[in-house]
Design a protein around this nucleic acid. Sequence first.
DNA 1: TGATCGCAAACTGCATGCACTTTTATCATG
DNA 2: CATGATAAAAGTGCATGCAGTTTGCGATCA
Lengths: 224, 224
Amino acid sequence: MTQAKRKTVTRTGTTVEQMVRAIADMIVTGIMVPGERLDELSLAARFEVSRTPVREALRELGAMGLVGREPNRSAIVKTVEEAHLHAMFEAMAELEGICARLSATRMDADERHALEQEHRASMQLVTAGVPEDYAAYNTEFHNRLYRGAHNDHLLELATQTRARLAPFRHAQFRLSGRLSKSYEEHGRIVTAILRADATAAGKAAYDHVSIVSDASTVFAVARV
Amino acid sequence: MTQAKRKTVTRTGTTVEQMVRAIADMIVTGIMVPGERLDELSLAARFEVSRTPVREALRELGAMGLVGREPNRSAIVKTVEEAHLHAMFEAMAELEGICARLSATRMDADERHALEQEHRASMQLVTAGVPEDYAAYNTEFHNRLYRGAHNDHLLELATQTRARLAPFRHAQFRLSGRLSKSYEEHGRIVTAILRADATAAGKAAYDHVSIVSDASTVFAVARV
DNA sequence: TGATCGCAAACTGCATGCACTTTTATCATG
DNA sequence: CATGATAAAAGTGCATGCAGTTTGCGATCA
């Protein structure tokens, strides 16, 4: 049968897909900074492949909006300039609002139960005060909201937008007090959803993201 | 397809970009039907290029969500199955609603004026009764709404979603009466925006898309 | 000194080739 | 006659090569 080459058959498919993920990760985590050139030869060397798969990966990253490409010019990590950053946070807030609103009426009993349980459990993380741990939980919380809307496309848009904003939201939980504030805001969202109060849920989620936006912008401006 | 040799520099970018556009167009206009296989060699022959740029084009179309790709398998025109179709229309409605709501408070005088003028002018298209012409105007109308929100990211999400839905919305204006109905609904949106009534604009746009959704679903189901 | 031109190195765009995988056609077997 | 094995054909994944474009740098000249 097929011998699993060196790249074992983890859920990653082709070489290109692995590279897309790897590069996207570097951009999103800030290892690669906006404006940085991504020349094909270096990347090929770095990943120990030829230029062909690198080119395909860059093409895909371009379509994803993470890198900019112009003919006969190196791909560059896209600068999310301030205006667009604000736009993205605003869009994110709207999307979260929609997801929460729909979740309020569409989540089934299991989903509601899980949401509540997890939220309660997260209180420990707040008191523990480890930003990384809470950030991980936070991501899961929001994903739960996106899934709760029972709308695959919305899930896709929200996930995609969130991924692009990740680098700018990275340090938010280090701000003093933000951790417990976040917990409180989550609480409002959870309560509204459990009550099936769509409007309240939507508003709570919208506000939640807006606040994050304010908190993060400082950071983003400081860094870029 | 006979003018591949010399690329007229100005108009289109690279070969790949041209191909992406061409293929996307074929999918969107229904020339290529969902499920159809897009094998690299045939496309290469068709466009008189080698497989390399074809592969890159398919990669990009995959990222755009128009074609599905799995390792070692031909790319296929994506079937937007019914469940997801409904999800996408719903998401589209939400996005349009947001754009209209934001447009109501953010459009500047020029934009408002242009919106109104164009809408008025479109009445002629209704009486003329040529679905293709009205469809073209309709696209422009909606783009105007997206831009009016003054939010690049939202614009991107809306454009992207709309592109994916295009094949399923294609025949809507052939339905008897849909043309003038559409005009009326546009009118409601325009009026609300000119009045800067954000809530009304949002609702009108949401409803407008929802109705299109109903009208198109019949078509989609019948065809797929 | 500084600006400009020209050339070579670096890099991208695309073609071609080969290895491996999937699909299809053929044929043997119950 | 259906079924399963199997080999050829078709197709994808990636490497390599070459031509054209961009870029960096040094020589030339005002």
